[in-house]
Amino acid sequence: MTTTEAVPNVSRQIRWLDFLAAFRAWLFLGILLVTFEIWAHAEYNSTFFLNPFNVKSIAIFTVTPLLLGLGQTFVIISGGIDLSVGFTMGLSAVVTAHVFNWGTQFGSPVLSLVLAVLTGLGIAVVPGVINGMLIADLRVPPFIGTLGMYGVARGVAFLLARGTTVPVQNALIGAIGNGEIAGFPNLVLLTVAILAMMHYILSQTRYGQHIYAIGGNVNAALRAGINVRNDTVVLYILSSLTAGCAGILYTAKFSAGAAQAGEPVLLDSIAAVVIGGASLFGGSGTVIGTVIGALIIAVIQYGLVFVNVEPFWQFVAVGVVIIISVLVDQIQKQVGKDGANG
């Protein structure tokens, strides 16, 4: 008699939690937007997200954490982590600025831009390949391997920048970095293009499917004939490449490369992935989730400034969101498991 009553209760609870877990990021984002909107109206009689300027600012603000988080999403789904992306971004930003300046001597800013972008991406591949080989071939734990690369990339980036920022000497790159097409900032458009590509790779290709399998059960992946070694190396290269894109866009936005460009954003980018629904144990996560996660962080940071709250509350707010996010995940997994067994 108790069991007949308990069963529908439990399954309703599971369904509710499943839903909450699946859409928690959207929910957070919605709550935040509504809160700031009400706040802005009540306190300053103005609007928050209905103001295109704010939307644009938040979108631009999201670019760096999102790009760093994109490759990170792949890595985290596979069960790894990439701590080196922040300084890979810095390295790429500095190299892009240097090569652009060096290339202008040939008289064609376009040529030097192409050279700079290719070199910026090329230099980003290096830490990716080394990370990948350390982790896939030498079995170095991802946390340790990429922490080492964090140090190496940091040092090399600062050395190449001679400890300072590297301003670019031609307006072209800055014009692109701050330009717009039909009201959409170029930076945002480029980011959306990269995003679409990464979303396609993760959600539609066999490679993407294999990343989930590796994160879910690496032995199953190996026994299914999946080339885990190569897939892992490609994973860290992708992560470095998106960081490299972030570095190039940074240089375009500020008309200067800086070694520390990505440093303050590294943890935010990991937070974006986790808030977006990825598990640090691997096996789950999506590009869309990371986009929402990055937007949540950007809205918190920008919104709190907008309503004039002391900026340090940002850290508290983002921290609370991370914790709630992970808690919902844990509770859902636990209840789900109890439900399957009982």
């Binding site: 539609q204 066999r206 399998a213 059960n217 096996g283």
Partner: peptide, 30 residues
Amino acid sequence: DLALADNLDVGANVFLGREPVRRIFGLPMV
């Protein structure tokens, strides 16, 4: 240990490592 990936559905597990691909606008998709 079954060599199954718990995070994937039945179809993805049956086809693990041998996923069929179709093309949409030339793009291969699982």
